[in-house]
Design a binder for these strands. Structure first.
Lengths: 388, 388
DNA sequence: CCAATATTGCTATGGAGTTTACGAAGTACG
DNA sequence: CGTACTTCGTAAACTCCATAGCAATATTGG
């Protein structure tokens, strides 16, 4: 079918493959003995031994000398994956705030930097704030740009293959911004720009409430509605990066959905438009009749778009996330009920637990996936760090 | 992440991997010399030589002795993939007909058997007809059930993991039929039952109009509307096998769409309900005003559901297939126009060329994929045929 | 202190691929 | 018609990798 190069396996490549296998096993395990690794990989003990020592030499693994052993026999030396060999950076450029996380190769967050920014900030201000917060995060974490092996930035609006949001974005003036190009001067590593909903979906499967599922429809519910799709365990972007943008279909009323909350009668004039939804949720909890009506209408509209996604993809789980997920207690049950009415096979509906950090966490996850892919295609030989 | 066995590569496994690489190269190529294979796989000439001879010994390849050579130097022996080592069976169990195809491992159809059946036939009759046509096809092709390495059957309605259509099916009484179990007595090989739209989508990517695309929304348009989704080059079924069933959402009006054609004013009483649509298409071509109105309404309704799928998945191509694709000349342009109005990023719209055979061809394709997967996981050693 | 047990390190063995080399089989050309 | 040239087929030597088995070593328990 394809005419691309079909890779025959050379003997040196064999060793590399087995090294990668050991790395993979090491990474998913607490510090491990050679014998355990041998059992895990199916390789012989001597082979694993040689490989493990090689990995220590090249920095991928560290030796843990045996301490007080609890078993009989000679205590075994243990090896652990050297997660601090490299780090990744994940950033969420939101309307109101910028959040940057730095994590090691295991995904442990080692530093967090947050800054709020006006929703009407122009692209120049926003980029300057981004640069500043990245610089701050690196400095405070004691890292330089060369310690970072991959960068992912989340923005609102569909992102195309080049990392631009030309189709549409709610950030003022952002249509013409080429964020990847902007960051390319600061980092030598791969830089990925991705849609915020898609990143949040990744986070939810990584650390959140959908860890067990391979087919997930993630709903980012806030003043804007969005969705991220994970199918067969992989984030799907679509051909032009616009997968999940079901809100564009007016018949499904996603655009209008948050309006029911914002324009709910009875919201005091003292409450700012941004906080109206929170007020309505609280009022609904207290039994306010207008608030309950608004909530009902909101859920019905959300369910309609969600049903379209569910019918299209037949996921195992629908995750209700985003800013409004704090009020999931009010939404989950009626949303589930509406979906049951509209869909053929009804998926589970769960509430997100990651809250406001989900986009930045998802950015970390995507950066780690990027490192992984290069690791398992390029190989261990070259350090995975800079491209040039 | 996973705790499953992580495969280390043994030396014998290495040889197997390289054998598989050579098989793969051989399969996509006209009869090939050892030197060419070596260049293609990156292996050395002696290594490929040994492997090729081994493949001939185990029946996977055949030798083509050199004939009149056109180049200088000693003419090379050529090897070709032995596509007739095994065969696959693909069947389309439709409302009005049953179509069975037998193909070799290259996908060349070696036999076709077709039979029409009443739309109201009960499950017993339908299964009997299926058995008969399979027996006929095997007999006339000079094969037995043991020559078949994989069977796929296409039916209407969403198919779950066990091969049953418990959610919904338009075939009378079919809800309780366990087709896979029925066929298990007749074949020792893997048997897959799959939804007809999904199979037609596969066919369109294999031999049809979407060979170049990895992200495809396939529309099966006929008296019933359905869809099959190919994302990142792979057919996606959804968690419960119900992906693409967007027609269940009444707001998107797929259920009603064919009705515009069937109930078009002006259709002569002499035309049977099944042929009404064809009459309307013809009348529209002749400029009949009522027919054009019906067609417009039909296209608008089709476009609405299609737009939901397009927005959800952002495909490269939308393929208009199924029985009505014969009249694609009337549909394509307005459908494309409607989609442009409704979608963010507008995909190409193409008309299917495979016609009524697409489901059976897709069944063949899925059977071949099944053989492939077993080949590349289980390996060459065991003949891929019977499971027990 | 000694026996039991498990790990570590070492050496011999065998399989697979590569390199090198040479005979074989055909073409091109004087 | 014969020689030079090209390419193929195959064998031998070599390298690399993983395995198997054994000796050495470190720890626990009696």
């Amino acid at each position: 079918m394809t005419d691309q190069v079909i890779a025959g396996v050379d003997l040196s490549r064999l060793r590399e493959l087995n090294s990668l296998t050991v790395v993979r096993a090491l990474r998913d395990q607490p510090p491990t003995t050679v014998t355990e690794l041998a059992a895990l990989t199916g390789l012989s003990r001597p082979a694993v031994d040689v490989i493990a020592q090689g990995l220590v030499g090249s920095g991928w693994a560290k030796v843990v000398e045996p301490g007080a052993s609890s078993t009989v026999g000679r205590p075994a030396r243990r090896y652990r994956f050297n997660a601090t060999a490299g780090h990744v950076l994940g950033v969420d450029v939101g309307g109101h705030k910028i959040l940057a996380l730095i994590a090691d190769l295991d995904g442990n967050v080692v530093h967090t930097a947050r800054r709020s920014i006006g929703a009407d900030a122009d692209p120049g201000e926003r980029l300057a704030a981004l640069d500043e917060i990245i610089a701050t995060a690196l400095r405070e974490a004691g890292k330089t740009a060369h310690d970072i092996w991959a960068v992912t930035v989340g923005v609102t609006g569909p992102v195309d293959a080049t990392g631009r949001t030309t189709l549409f974005t709610p950030l003022p003036g952002w249509q013409t911004v080429d964020l990847a190009a902007h960051l390319k001067d600061r980092f030598a590593c791969p830089i990925v720009v991705e849609n915020d909903c898609k990143l949040a979906a990744l986070a939810e499967r990584w650390l959140g409430v959908a860890r067990d599922a391979d087919d997930i429809v993630f709903l980012l519910a806030g003043m804007r509605m969005g969705a991220g799709l994970i199918i067969d365990g992989t984030l799907r972007r679509g051909y032009g990066g616009a997968a999940g943008e079901i809100g564009a279909l007016k018949a499904l009323r996603w655009l209008a959905a948050p309006g029911h909350l914002q324009n709910c009668p009875g919201v005091p004039a003292s409450v700012s438009p941004d906080d109206a939804a929170a007020w309505v949720f609280n009022a609904a909890r207290d039994g306010n009749r207008d608030a309950r009506t608004a909530l009902n209408r909101y859920v019905k509209d959300v369910a309609l778009g969600a049903a379209a996604l569910v019918l299209a993809l037949d996921p195992q789980v629908v995750v209700f996330g985003g800013g409004f997920s704090r009020s999931a207690d009010l939404v989950l049950e009626p949303l589930s009920r509406e979906l049951a009415k509209l869909c053929l096979r009804v998926p589970e509906v769960r509430a997100s637990t990651l809250g406001a950090d989900s986009v930045a966490l998802g950015a970390l996850r995507l950066a780690l996936i990027e490192v992984d892919q290069r690791l398992f295609s390029v190989g261990l030989s070259a350090p995975v760090a800079p491209r040039r």
